[in-house]
Design a protein around this nucleic acid. Sequence first.
DNA 1: TTTAATTTTTAGCTTTGTCTAAAAATAAAT
DNA 2: ATTTATTTTTAGACAAAGCTAAAAATTAAA
Lengths: 217, 217
Amino acid sequence: MTFSEENYLKAIYHLTSHSNSGVSTNAIAEMMETKASSVTDMLKKLSDKDFVNYKKYQGVSLTESGKLEAKMIVRKHRLWEVFLVEKLDFSWDEVHEIAEQLEHIKSEKLINKLDDFLGNPTEDPHGDPIPDAKGRIIAIEKQLLSELVPHQSGVCVGVKDTSSAFLKYLDKQEIALGSTIDFISKETFDLSLKIKVDGKELTISNKIASNLFVKLL
Amino acid sequence: MTFSEENYLKAIYHLTSHSNSGVSTNAIAEMMETKASSVTDMLKKLSDKDFVNYKKYQGVSLTESGKLEAKMIVRKHRLWEVFLVEKLDFSWDEVHEIAEQLEHIKSEKLINKLDDFLGNPTEDPHGDPIPDAKGRIIAIEKQLLSELVPHQSGVCVGVKDTSSAFLKYLDKQEIALGSTIDFISKETFDLSLKIKVDGKELTISNKIASNLFVKLL
DNA sequence: TTTAATTTTTAGCTTTGTCTAAAAATAAAT
DNA sequence: ATTTATTTTTAGACAAAGCTAAAAATTAAA
């Protein structure tokens, strides 16, 4: 399995995980920052290897085998992110790029030993679940902060947007995984939210709120 | 810099490190398990990028810039090997292949943080020196066990052959880095050596002795 | 010092993954 | 229900890195 094939599988996995139907050639091209024609070529190859169900013009979905492969790549990516943050003291906005490289290292023994070394974590530094060695995922119950109604409270358990810009914003506002968030009120004009983060009052835009996952208290 | 370019630089580095003259196309081809024609192609590319001094039919050597690149790859390889053995509990015969992949991960920050995390080791699990961030190498004084004369003693500080077969043999004989080795006598017929390893008497072939580095006591 | 053997390079082909441009299929709109 | 727009696929080209086979240069041998 080449790096490129792995990246396609991962992209298809992420595009289909939240909407269990097929995904379009264009959607993959956009996510991979490549051209639709390149995607078509790769889909043929992945289809030959039975990693995807592909019929011309009909979109594509992962086979069981493709899904497992994709999960193993995600597993590696997220475990390496934990390593970088927990052991090497990287901040959560720096780890994605490096993990993009590390996720392609091939050694099952390595990844399972790394998993043990890290204490078998179930979430990565952004709150995303880490598949186990068999591809099982324990999904935590969580919702977007923007979906709450005033006077509800929760603990910050994840971010939807993992861009460096967003994560650095959160650092500046001292919002981190584990922070307690009390939803005080919503401004009807711009949908901005008044919240308390670990007791400290703060106003955030709706865009911020719709990228923060919380677990209700 | 591609993986392939990095692998060529590394090969040329290893081939020239112990004999500071140029190296032949064929020697590189043999080390890389590829064809001479492929080597020629790559040498042109590396020469264009000023990593090697190359003139047709005249052999090749590394430029300063090429040597530094090569050392950084060796640095990464050996630091990852330390990580695998010290932190993930791999044995010294398992780490080479995985480090061959990890050495190509691109992030200076990563490798320097890893270096610190490991306590800035100066040797890898096989006793080979680890270049520092600037490419400096502290060479330990060592010689092959086969070069000693009877009644000399030393501490095992490295192996020349790092093949899995050899390392597993050493494990079986309980010879490890740090073992004290007393050279008792040499058999004139087959040049085999009678030695004591941490006090325990043992006979080893000359082939074994000429792949073990010791530091004289 | 020619001839023979070896080494190295060139020329041309293959595969992988990408691209552009054009054709075909599907979806949307009048 | 056509026409128009969009999406997707095909066809053909390109760069990277490898290969084989043949040519050129170097080295060794007679």
